Computed example of a mutant assay.
Amino acid sequence: MPNTCVVPGCKGNYRSGPKVQVFSFPKDPELHRKWLHAIRRKDFTPTKNNKVCELHFKTSDLRKETAVFDESTGREIRVPLMVPRLVEGAIPSQLPNCPSYLSAASFSRESPDSKRTRMEQTALAIAMTDSILENELHKEKKTFHSLVELKNKMQFIDSKFWSVVEYGDSLALCHIVFTPSPKVKFSLVISTSLNVTAFLEDNDIRFGCIQITSYCE
């Protein structure tokens, strides 16, 4: 005689119930605990003869066929299993024959307004997270701590406005105008200590010692 199902209210494999495939409780302690929590049977310690039937699993939890690779044809052949098996990690979740207070379907459903509010809040949280991350990446792109780092980030400088020139240990950003021949209108010379000297055409303009650690686009 096949084992009966131990889920409360289920008639699986009883004389008055359907004939079903049953499954043993898993040996993995954590998965075993989840099964016990799912079936909601009070003061119950399962033995090797206690089973849960297929009626309490989703279709996606049941594996009813297996695949065999045919090397001679290079094709995968699917073969039905004589006895269905559970996919790894499957947990009983369907309790249609249990008392209503045990069934997942008995829980109150989320109202449309509540669902809409929840989804809007989730979308807002995601947008805020993305905005903060984007801002941090933007700041990281513009921040440097040495002349070498600045040189590596020259690709982010507006090349339509600035022309970048390296000479010696310094770096120059030049704004060139055509009147009609090319002429440096103004420029910034950055030293290895990140001090900046500004030039208007050929005139050196100084406002004390200016040191930079980021640039403006």
Rank of each mutant, 00 (worst) to 15 (best):
S108T: 08
D70K: 03
L137K: 15
T179D: 11
K183F: 13
M119E: 14
T47G: 15
F207T: 07
T213V: 05
P84I: 01
L188A: 12
V7P: 00
K19Y: 03
E76Q: 10
H138Y: 15
S214Q: 11
V189P: 00
S131L: 10
Q121M: 13
S170T: 14
F178N: 09
H32Q: 07
H37I: 12
V148G: 03
S170P: 00
A67H: 02
P2M: 02
S100Y: 06
E88I: 07
A172F: 02
V196D: 06
C209K: 15
Q94R: 11
K139L: 11
F186L: 09
S191L: 01
L188P: 02
H37G: 02
W162H: 06
D28N: 12
K34D: 01
P84K: 05
V164Q: 04
T197M: 08
V7L: 05
S191G: 06
K19F: 05
V83P: 00
S187F: 07
D202P: 02
F107I: 07
C5P: 04
E140W: 05
S93K: 08
C98A: 15
E120Q: 13
S131I: 03
V22G: 02
P2V: 04
S114L: 01
M119V: 12
V83L: 08
M82T: 12
Y14T: 15
E136C: 11
P80F: 00
W162D: 04
K27T: 06
R75W: 00
R78W: 13
L124R: 15
E217T: 07
V196N: 07
